[in-house]
Amino acid sequence: MKKLCLAVSILAASTSAAWAQSSVVISGILDGAVRYTTNSGPATNKSASLSQMVGGGMSQSRLSVAVTEDMGDGLKAIANIEHRLLLDSGTSAAGDFWRQAWVGLQSNSFGRITLGRQYNLLFDAATSTFASFKYSPYIEVFKPEIGMALTARQNNMVKYLVESGGLRFEAQVSAGENSGDIGQGKSIGALVRYAAGSFAGAYVWLQSEDQGGKKVTAQTMGASWTDGPLYVNMAWAQNKFETGYSLAGNVTLLGSINTAIISRNPASAATVATDAAAQVRDLFSAGITYQLTPQFNLGAQVWKGKQVGLVPGRGTGVLDAFAVVADYALSKRTDAYVEFDNLRTKGNVVISNGANTRTGYMVGVRHRF
């Protein structure tokens, strides 16, 4: 009887393996840096500088688990969970432990459909098509372009992707089933991307609602060109807010860690409603990366942001920023980098502590596994 049970088990296992091969890949990034930033004190002492270790300099530290099951005939089941952490403290980088959590199906015939918490199409286009740096899509601690991506991820999302040759189409839709989750409301959007040879370009339209049904409409368009060691990118992004859109989602010009720009530093809560509300925000960016040697890369990126307030003269202003990075590959998986960034504001927009300029210096090490 024992021999019979063993034989049946072996047969079942071998039969299953014939039509379904599964793989689980654990990967991640560990990035730590020392950073010095000027004009980072409280509003009462805004000129004070800040020295710190950051748990993600060029890239946010993360741990990812990706699952693929080959079910035959060109059909696969796919799934992914991703946790983002702060290397300096070992704590979660945000309140959501899993920054991504999705499952889906992929077919050679119909494309790919995924369900769950995922990157939105604005983030997809920026990181895959016109990334700010060839060796890193953006600088984690200084990322104006991601501040225009409507939180970059959204809950309750169904995303569809199909490709043919160099042409890619993506669509997303998400349900705003949690009325209190302002930044993760209903959404609908589409992406078109084309890549051929050295050129890649993309356009995205995405609309999201707050808990009151007020809409923000985002667009982004950009392209990149690669020629041997040279990489060039440029892009435009826009957020357009419907009158009455929740102030909690409309308080910053650019929502990056070190570019938290507000319409002004309000003297009292009573001024927030008129001074923080924007009607339209635009961001233009361009950059270049050059690979001097197989190990050594130099990159530079510039951003220019403009905000028009709902109330004339309130919340209106511009932002100018740039960053320079030198990156050296110590091995296939480990690199060291030096980074310098600067931002300046004009008009009725300021950094969150009331300053109009800020400069950052950073040295770090990053390992991918």
Rank of each mutant, 00 (worst) to 15 (best):
227 D>K: 06
59 S>Q: 10
42 P>C: 03
66 A>L: 13
124 D>H: 04
95 G>S: 13
39 N>F: 00
289 T>E: 02
17 A>Q: 13
345 T>I: 00
158 V>M: 08
303 W>I: 00
273 A>N: 07
293 T>A: 01
144 P>C: 03
252 T>Y: 13
210 D>T: 03
327 D>H: 07
200 A>R: 11
103 V>L: 07
143 K>F: 14
53 M>W: 09
225 W>F: 13
175 A>S: 13
369 F>V: 08
237 A>G: 14
227 D>T: 03
165 G>R: 03
216 V>S: 11
281 R>V: 06
356 N>A: 03
162 V>W: 08
112 R>T: 10
106 Q>E: 15
231 Y>Q: 01
241 F>Q: 07
207 Q>H: 08
94 A>C: 05
32 G>H: 05
69 E>S: 12
319 L>K: 02
261 I>G: 04
360 G>L: 10
295 Q>F: 04
147 G>I: 04
270 A>W: 05
290 Y>W: 11
29 I>C: 05
23 S>T: 15
201 G>R: 00
173 V>F: 00
259 T>P: 06
40 S>K: 08
275 D>K: 11
261 I>A: 07
113 I>V: 11
249 G>L: 11
328 Y>M: 04
1 M>E: 15
132 S>A: 15
339 E>F: 11
49 S>I: 02
167 L>C: 06
78 I>D: 01
39 N>S: 05
127 T>V: 09
333 R>D: 13
8 V>K: 15
177 E>C: 05
196 A>V: 05
166 G>R: 00
64 S>E: 08
365 V>K: 06
205 W>K: 12
353 N>C: 01
243 T>A: 15
30 L>P: 09
10 I>A: 12
13 A>L: 11
50 L>M: 09
219 Q>G: 12
333 R>G: 06
284 F>A: 03
